[in-house]
Computed example of a mutant assay.
Amino acid sequence: MSRVAFVDGAYVDMASARISIEDRGFQFGDSIYEVIHFVGDFYVDAEGHLDRLERSLLELKIPVPLPRATLMMHVRHLRRKNRIQEGFVYIQISRGQAPRNHLFPVGASPTLVVVIKRQLFTSFEPKKIITLPDTRWKRCDIKTTNLLPNVLAKQKAFEENAFEGWLVGEGDVISEGSLSNAWIVKEGRLYTAPTTCNILGGITRKRLIMLAAQEKIPVVEKSFTVKDAYQAEEAFNSSSNAPLTPVVQINDRKIGTGVPGPISRRLHQAYLRFVEDGLRHG
């Protein structure tokens, strides 16, 4: 069966889906996106993702194309049309179609694209990461499609046989990964960078902080350096597509004992229980 997408109010075959070459998302990266993992009809932390989507639109002064209830109705219908039990929904909204001009176009309507893709939760498999210079713009808190620095970082990590690249700025401070939030464990406490304009406020990050509180695991929202990461007892990444991925090597340095640590394991199990509970209760 061919895949189906939702493009500007219509369900269309993926092979024939089209947007204009004058779409501002295509020409300027003048667009935002959101990714929501789902299992059946349970959309993990959907409200948090939709809050962030609407905030990104507000920050860029792009009108909200659909009420969230209507948008989620189309998302659910699209999942059923594609007959996918587990995967993620990708939502992208641009400022719309207009003749190329840096100024905001008058009267343009936002372009809305929704795609469903099959993907299982990644396993709790330990990974190596590398550190790289953070060359992104200064509004990383907006989830825009301007991802070229992230793409280059992820590609560099791949070329170095690493899973992810942690981005390093002034003072050797780690902000986040190319497509994930960064965490370390020191003296039994979880450390992750605070939500400023320099990082994306991860929805899975927020969920893990809540689960850590339930598990009585202290969380410190404080920036940490590469040296701090080298000296950590544990480290991991978090994202919607890979909720908690243990990091056992950073560059050429082994982290902790070189295997996933007890706090990472405990928090991962708490996350799985959260998803299972969501499946039971919707």
Rank of each mutant, 00 (worst) to 15 (best):
Met1Leu: 10
Val4Phe: 10
Ala5Asp: 12
Val7Phe: 06
Arg24Met: 12
Asp30Phe: 01
Glu34Ile: 00
His37Asp: 03
Val44Phe: 14
Ala46Gln: 14
Glu47Gly: 12
Asp51Ile: 15
Arg52Met: 06
Ser56Ile: 06
Ser56Trp: 09
Leu58Lys: 15
Leu60Gln: 03
Leu60Val: 03
Arg68Thr: 13
Thr70Leu: 08
Leu71Met: 11
His77Tyr: 11
Arg79Ile: 04
Arg79Ser: 01
Asn82Phe: 01
Ile93Asn: 00
Ala98Pro: 07
Arg100Ser: 02
Phe104Cys: 06
Ser109Glu: 15
Val114Pro: 00
Val115Phe: 11
Ile116Gly: 08
Arg118Pro: 03
Leu120Pro: 06
Leu120Val: 13
Leu120Asp: 14
Ile130Asp: 06
Thr135Tyr: 01
Asn146Leu: 14
Ala153Thr: 00
Glu160Gly: 00
Leu167His: 08
Glu170Trp: 09
Glu176Val: 09
Asn181Pro: 07
Val185Arg: 02
Lys186Gln: 14
Tyr191Asp: 10
Ala193Cys: 04
Thr196Arg: 11
Cys197Val: 12
Ile199Met: 05
Leu200Tyr: 07
Lys206Leu: 08
Lys206Gln: 11
Arg207Cys: 05
Val219Trp: 07
Lys227Phe: 09
Tyr230His: 10
Glu234Tyr: 03
Ser238Gln: 08
Asn241Gly: 15
Val247Arg: 04
Gln249Asn: 05
Ile255Pro: 02
Gly261Met: 06
Ile263Ala: 02
Ser264Cys: 10
Arg266Glu: 13
Leu267Ala: 05
Ala270Phe: 06
Gly282Phe: 08
